[in-house]
Amino acid sequence: MASRRAVDPAEMREAVVAVRPWLDDDAQRPARPELAAAVRLSLRTLEQIAPGNSVEVRVPPFAAVQCVAGPRHTRGTPPNVVETDARTWLQLATGRLTWPEALDRGTLTASGTRADISQWLPLLRIDS
């Protein structure tokens, strides 16, 4: 499989800034293309900074990436899975929500011994 083009940090920042009001509860849900861009670019950034195939991070319906060095899974359900919704993911990615807070709220599930990806979060900080 061909490797993907590296994410431009400015492009990722711009995509996430575009949905910032929604992350802060100040606006209606962004248009699907804006939200998809923010989620996909931030997940691909995680994939770049934590390369590997031992953890699958899912933000349905927008994207899933594999990251974190370790044993690679090849078929079926991976042993280490993180799954959340778009808002929770972007709040984690921007530092507006912590890993323990998301787990306590039940908006984040993390299963497997390598599933705690909190050491790579936040991916970026944007001013309120």
Rank of each mutant, 00 (worst) to 15 (best):
S3M: 10
S3P: 03
R4I: 00
R5I: 14
A6M: 10
A6V: 14
A6L: 12
V7W: 02
V7M: 00
P9W: 06
V16S: 03
V17N: 05
V17Q: 14
V17D: 06
A18C: 04
A18D: 12
V19W: 10
V19H: 11
R20H: 05
R20V: 01
P21E: 12
P21G: 00
P21S: 02
W22F: 11
L23V: 06
D24Y: 04
D26A: 15
D26F: 03
D26Q: 15
D26E: 15
A27W: 03
Q28V: 06
Q28N: 05
R29V: 10
P30K: 05
A31M: 13
L35H: 00
A36Q: 08
A37V: 05
A38H: 01
A38C: 01
A38T: 02
V39G: 00
V39E: 00
L41V: 10
S42H: 02
L43N: 08
R44W: 12
I49T: 08
A50Y: 02
P51I: 04
P51Y: 04
N53Y: 11
N53G: 13
S54N: 10
S54P: 09
V55R: 09
E56G: 01
P60F: 13
P61L: 09
P61F: 08
F62P: 00
F62E: 13
F62W: 11
V65A: 01
V68H: 14
V68I: 13
A69H: 06
G70W: 01
G70N: 07
P71V: 14
P71D: 13
R72A: 15
R72F: 10
R75M: 12
R75W: 13
G76E: 01
T77K: 15
T77M: 11
P78G: 14
P78Y: 04
P78M: 02
V81L: 04
V81S: 01
V82R: 06
V82E: 03
V82M: 03
E83D: 11
D85L: 09
A86E: 14
R87H: 12
R87G: 13
W89G: 07
L90K: 01
L90A: 07
T94P: 02
T94I: 04
G95F: 02
G95T: 08
R96W: 02
R96I: 08
T98S: 15
T98M: 05
W99L: 08
E101L: 05
E101R: 14
A102V: 12
L103K: 12
L103I: 13
L103V: 15
D104A: 15
D104V: 04
L108G: 11
L108M: 10
T109I: 13
A110S: 06
S111Q: 12
R114P: 04
R114V: 04
D116R: 09
D116G: 08
D116I: 11
I117C: 03
I117S: 02
I117A: 00
S118F: 09
Q119V: 12
Q119A: 15
W120P: 06
L121G: 04
L121W: 04
P122F: 11
R125W: 10
R125D: 09
I126D: 07
D127W: 13
